[in-house]
Design a protein around this nucleic acid. Sequence first.
DNA 1: CTAAGATTCAAACGAACGTTTAATTGACCA
DNA 2: TGGTCAATTAAACGTTCGTTTGAATCTTAG
Lengths: 241, 241
Amino acid sequence: MDAKVIPIGANRSGPTATQARILDTAEALFMEHGFEATSLRSLTAAAGVNLAAVNYHFGTKEELFEAVLTRRLDPMNQERIELLDRLEHKAAPDALTCERILMALFVPALRLARDPARGGNNFLRLLGRAYADPAPFIRQFLSEQYAVTIARFKAAFGRALPHLPKKELSWRLHFIMGALSYTLAGTDAHKIISELSPRETDSDEILLRRLAPFLLAGLNAPLPELSQVTREVDSALGRKR
Amino acid sequence: MDAKVIPIGANRSGPTATQARILDTAEALFMEHGFEATSLRSLTAAAGVNLAAVNYHFGTKEELFEAVLTRRLDPMNQERIELLDRLEHKAAPDALTCERILMALFVPALRLARDPARGGNNFLRLLGRAYADPAPFIRQFLSEQYAVTIARFKAAFGRALPHLPKKELSWRLHFIMGALSYTLAGTDAHKIISELSPRETDSDEILLRRLAPFLLAGLNAPLPELSQVTREVDSALGRKR
DNA sequence: CTAAGATTCAAACGAACGTTTAATTGACCA
DNA sequence: TGGTCAATTAAACGTTCGTTTGAATCTTAG
């Protein structure tokens, strides 16, 4: 009398109905409460499946979490790299501008955010949360999952900003990932800052459109130097250079 | 034969030795594993106190977490506002530059980072983690704790950037908080990006010195507009304006 | 010195957790 | 139609969690 209407037939093509329900529910609950605070009992109850189903289909709770991330992340990162390749090919032999590299980074995320069938805004929020989770298995999984994509984009930025030392570039990419994940993760966090129009929740799309110029300017910022203010900071810290 | 050497005398002045040991250990463990993943049993064992001591001295685990944050956060935010007041008074009647406002935001954090007796780098990392924690009581606590400080700085930035719409400013402050907390929280996160010199862990101080120019440039970024790239993004998303 | 209060202690509480088991159901092919 | 294997189910496993309890111990004031 429930959702047994789905006779998808073969069990060797794609995820089972049960697997899909678990993944969808896990995506929502992990996003809302985090990994530790989401119990398999509440998860399976919300999904309308048996408690043992998670362990049967995914092994452990940690493997379920990784499956939730992989399902969305792999296609998105592949899209990012394909788009970057296409843009680079079109611009050859010139190097890409930072603006276009950022575009290759953001557009697949925007596409995902606008597509409810692929998780929409919810998944991006989950991703942002995962980036800040201290659980070792999450950190390791993300670094493995992102390694090639990040390296590819870092190389592209390196060509676009040849004057920028490698180390400085690494840090600026780090700052970009920070602002991006924090922004994506922030369901209500922005209410801390913006007291006006507290119910006007911008979509992730508008949000990323505001974020891009901000990050672009940061990428092109001058190198830290011994300016007047820097000396004032040192003085305020009671130190000599 | 242990730490019983401290005869601080009165029990009405400052925290007990037991309370201090709990707070210090909690600061370290909450930073390393997060709130949920830190059990009171491991915490009290590491602190060398009885299991019941936390509930006796602080009430609940959540109240302990808030006490850990308050101990460092209150003085730091007070320092920030005092410094901002002093800088504004010195610049009057001119408005402060963004550079100096950022200085008032960063210098107290730098002072704290350089002072092991006040938590040093560890506490800043804990703070960054707390900002990304989905636990409702943490989010509410932080927003209450930061409300006045943020409002004060937002007003200062508003005077420094009179041309910037209020809403745009709110978002840029949001981005700043994101990059800041993500950066402070990242013990090993930067290894995702920087494959070179993986063991050369910059202190938070050097880190913030790299972050400040990046954020300053973002604050002064031009408003989002209908540039050529923007149209290309729309086209890539298959949409008309 | 002693009564009173603050603190520490070992022990136990009930609840919730992730995972496993063994039996049962369902679908498919020979 | 009967046999095979994947999927689901209810129940239980052992562990760990935050918190509470009541007695023991320490500190302090009268």
